[in-house]
């Protein structure tokens, strides 16, 4: 089993199975471009630094990739794909403990940075699911977003659209 070492921003080392890393577009491109796959070169032993991902977040990402090992990897942006996405139970349980906190958001940003499309999609879907049936101020309160609007600004946005609602 080929292992490749990922180094988080806080300099923690994570040896990860080569096969798992195929889920990450960013790392896969790096491996291919730097010949890290070639066991006969020194490059193979070179760790991959990930300066934008902290150790605890990278650990969660690896945990997620391990569970989804062998899943088909999404290609392209699929922006026009209108199929409804359902977060599977395992993923829902995986995201839930950190939901509404910065940890889940950091995991989502890491998925975007590492270009792990399936993780990004499910993570974003899990966030958007928390908006269901809520008002703007309720979403703001639940996610701890500071209220920057003056009452007049808020009223103006409401008024702009109330004719059609």
């Amino acid at each position: 089993m080929v292992l490749i070492t990922l180094v988080s921003s806080d300099e923690q080392n994570f040896p990860v199975e080569r096969e798992l890393l195929k889920q990450s577009g960013t790392i896969e491109t790096l491996i291919v471009n730097m010949n890290l796959d070639d066991e006969d070169t020194d490059a193979a032993a070179m760790p991959i630094p990930l300066p934008n991902v902290k150790g605890d977040v990278l650990e969660k990402v690896i945990q997620w990739m391990e569970h989804h090992k062998g899943d088909p990897v999404k290609e392209g942006d699929n922006e026009d794909n209108n199929a409804e996405i359902v977060v599977p139970q395992w993923d829902d349980d995986f995201f839930k403990p950190a939901m509404y906190g910065s940890k889940h958001l950091e995991l989502t940003v890491a998925a975007s940075y590492l270009d792990i499309k399936n993780l990004l999609t499910l993570s974003c879907k899990a966030i958007s699911n928390t908006f269901k049936g809520k008002t703007g101020p309720q979403i703001r309160e639940e996610w701890g977003v500071p209220n920057e609007f003056t009452p007049e600004e808020e009223e103006a946005i409401r008024k702009e659209n109330e004719w059609s609602e």
């Binding site: 908006f131 809520k134 703007g136 979403i139 609007f149 808020e154 946005i157 702009e160 659209n161 609602e165």
Partner: peptide, 14 residues
């Protein structure tokens, strides 16, 4: 619901 999710999201923050 006929209320627009677009308006709801606009009201979260600037």
């Amino acid at each position: 619901k006929q209320k627009s999710i677009r308006t709801t999201l606009r009201l979260v923050c600037r």
